[in-house]
Design a protein around this nucleic acid. Structure first.
Length: 665
DNA sequence: ACGGAACTATTTTTT
DNA sequence: ATAGTTCCGT
């Protein structure tokens, strides 16, 4: 059959065997089969955006495009993985053949190979947010020791934020500082100096922060013609997911790499919710201008929600003042219940309402896994959390502290980082600071001494750690620990050169830190298991630098990993984290003015974004949507009366059912 | 001057 | 739960 035919023909061209016309609706089909050249796909919530993108990739393959010529850029690791897996499922082409991943991840990969001209070596380390903040803090202290002493001046964290925002929006740091901090004096020049010194320090230590992965990538494209040529040649087809949330830096990268205009941008301007970290709604609005001659595809058929939920969602956007592409989701599902708006006395009663309703639904055959509870900010779910644990309903929170961000994981990672790149002082400071009587200052001096001592004796850094002269510089109470640490570091260093990455991690985990861990935490057992998990994770990698990059860039692995497949549990999560997900039953908490929209957002005039956030939250729901708000805010200061969220004023009253919760519910 | 303990306030969102 | 802050002891 196939066997004979395949043997005869010339080089068989890849065919997926997919009947595109049959498997897609008209709108999707048009976008999937769009001609090469620029296209903007406006895919509404629940309209099969991921499906469209994956089929587009399959279609490109059918047109003879080589998998390695396809660059697929996403926002989160989760989205990247999902997309690549689905493409692999659909076409049978291994996801390894594509260039797919987050902007940061792709940037990292390219910089490791080609970053020389912009000053990074292949083995550079990546700093996460807290690392880069502490490095900046050190730099500020060195450039201007008095600056942080003055309490009127912004804190390092705030400055770090400002610098990062400026870099992501391609603004001048000094100018931005002047606009945001006109008091006590114009800090523009100061912050400009800090930013410059910070840049220099990173290059010196051969480290890169998150923003560098994008910024240096763009710089390389702009300054190295051969790299630009390489990229535009190699990435014949560029696809960008969640385009509405790209910032100016990312858009510049896409525009440069995609100067051949074979770019497909997919997104939904109504779902842009990251302007606070530099997302530029204008990117999607002006895409047709920057990539002229293309097509705009609208996909507005919604397969997710009932007509009742959709009418509600559509009218949320009526109150939206910002100009966007006109779009109206069409429902295809049969009728369901209207969304229900419930007012409760306070947040405690709100929790009671949620729990009772859930119990009732579960009695009627719903499973816990069908239910998600959404809120604007994590602390708004505190009451509910307590009530849930009291009643024993299984729940999972996807919240702040992630797996790779936990202290013990970061401690181990710091040691591996340092072994991989001994210029990474931030890493050294982290684990050295764990020793008794050793803080940042002592650690810094110690580091300088060891570097100096090693150089004088023509020896390797790691081989002199146990030398008498070095030990003498360690504070007396820390000496025992130091010797053990020194041995571990030396072992790891040598293993890094001739063993696999997981062996390096194993040595670190079983070395000094393993013992130290037991003395530090009462729950050392479970933390130890976490670290064993990291060893297991490491075995997936062949290159130490690749492992480290993943450890730092894969922040979100945690949340997914903690939910076992088949485990039935309610999910509690912020609206931001719910983007792209869908659930049969959705609760939205705290729908009162001041809570959602947040007071802060109202004051800063970010109402449009809050409205989009509300839109995102209601469009997560498939069958049932419950909105609730407390009438009195009892926490944090004197009790205050709360009004229902202003979002509701743009929704026709007959689109939802308003009820008042009573304990007899 | 530094490190550490004790205290206090404070929680948006992510690579 | 954690970060930031303040204060005290070395």
């Amino acid at each position: 059959m196939d066997f004979f035919e395949a043997a005869e023909g010339p080089e068989p061209q890849f065919t997926s065997g997919i009947n595109f016309e049959e498997e897609l609706n008209e709108e999707q089909y048009a976008a999937v089969t769009a001609p090469f050249g620029p296209s903007l796909v406006l895919a509404g919530a629940g309209s099969g955006k991921t499906r469209t993108l994956t089929y587009r990739v399959a279609w490109l393959l059918d047109q003879g495009v080589d998998p390695s010529a396809i660059l697929l850029l996403t926002f989160t690791n989760k989205a990247a993985r999902e997309m690549l897996d689905r493409v692999a499922d659909l076409t049978g082409v291994s996801s390894k053949l594509f260039w797919g991943g987050t902007f940061h991840h792709i940037g990292q990969r390219l910089l490791r190979r080609f970053g020389g001209p912009v000053g990074v070596n292949p083995g550079f380390n990546i700093l996460d947010q807290s690392d880069s903040e502490s490095l900046l803090s050190d730099v500020i202290r060195r450039v201007d020791p008095k600056f942080l002493k003055d309490k009127n001046n912004p804190k390092p964290k705030v400055i770090a934020n400002l610098i990062s925002y400026a870099r992501n929006t391609l603004e001048d740091v000094g100018v931005m500082a002047r606009e945001r901090y006109p008091y006590p004096a114009n800090l523009g020049p100061d912050i400009g100096r800090f930013a410059a010194a910070y840049e220099k320090e990173k290059r010196k230590q051969d480290v890169a922060d998150y923003d560098d992965l994008l910024e240096l990538w763009l710089k390389l494209l702009k300054t190295d013609p051969s790299f630009l040529h390489y990229c535009t040649q190699k990435f014949d087809q560029v696809l960008v997911d969640e385009y509405q949330d790209t910032n100016r830096l990312q858009a510049a990268i896409v525009d440069t790499i995609g100067s051949h205009h074979r770019v497909m941008a997919v997104g939904d301007d109504s779902q842009c919710i990251y302007t606070w970290r530099g997302a530029e709604l204008n990117n999607i609005m002006t895409f047709p201008d920057r990539h002229p001659g293309g097509n705009i595809f609208k996909i507005e058929t919604n397969y997710r929600s009932t007509p009742q939920i959709l009418s509600f969602a559509n009218s949320v956007l009526d109150g939206h003042t910002g100009g966007g592409f006109r779009k109206e989701l069409r429902a295809v599902r049969p009728d369901g219940n209207k969304p229900i708006l419930v007012s409760t006395v306070d947040t405690t009663q709100q929790a009671e309402f949620v729990i009772r309703t859930i119990s009732q639904m579960v009695d009627n055959g719903r499973s816990y896994g069908d239910i998600v509870i959404l809120y604007r900010a994590h602390f708004q779910a505190m009451d509910l959390q307590m009530e849930l644990s009291r009643t024993g309903i299984p729940f999972q929170i996807t919240s702040g502290v992630r797996f790779f961000e936990q202290a013990h994981v970061k401690d181990i990672v710091a040691q591996i980082r340092f072994v991989a790149n001994p210029r990474d002082i931030t890493a050294f400071l982290r684990f050295a600071g764990l020793l008794p009587k050793v803080g940042p200052r002592t650690a810094e001096k110690l580091y300088a001494f060891i570097v100096d001592f090693a150089e004088k004796n023509q020896q390797n850094f790691f081989d002199v750690l146990g030398a008498k002269a070095v030990v003498a510089k360690v504070p007396a109470p820390a000496r025992d620990d130091w010797e053990s640490l020194a041995t571990t570091l030396r072992d790891c260093y040598h293993a890094a050169h001739d063993e696999s990455p997981d062996e390096v991690v194993r040595l670190a985990v079983e070395g000094w830190y393993g013992t130290y861990l037991r003395t530090l935490y009462p729950n050392w057992k479970s933390r130890e298991e976490d670290l064993t998990g990291v060893v297991g994770f490491a075995s997936r990698f062949e290159e130490l630098s690749e492992l480290l990059a993943q450890l730092i860039l894969l922040n979100s692995e945690a949340s997914d990993r903690s939910i076992e497949p088949g485990e039935e549990t309610i999910r509690l999560t912020t609206i931001h984290q719910s983007k792209g997900l869908e659930f049969p039953v959705v609760f939205i908490l705290g729908l009162a003015d001041g809570m959602f929209p947040l007071n802060r957002a109202v004051e800063e005039g970010n109402l449009d974004e809050e409205t989009r956030l509300f839109y995102v939250s209601v469009t997560r729901a498939q069958d049932e949507l419950f909105l609730s708000y407390p009438m009195v805010q009892s926490q944090g200061g004197p009790p205050r009366r709360l009004q229902p969220s202003r979002f509701l004023s743009s929704v026709r009253p007959d689109y939802y059912e308003a009820v008042r919760y009573r304990s007899s519910w």
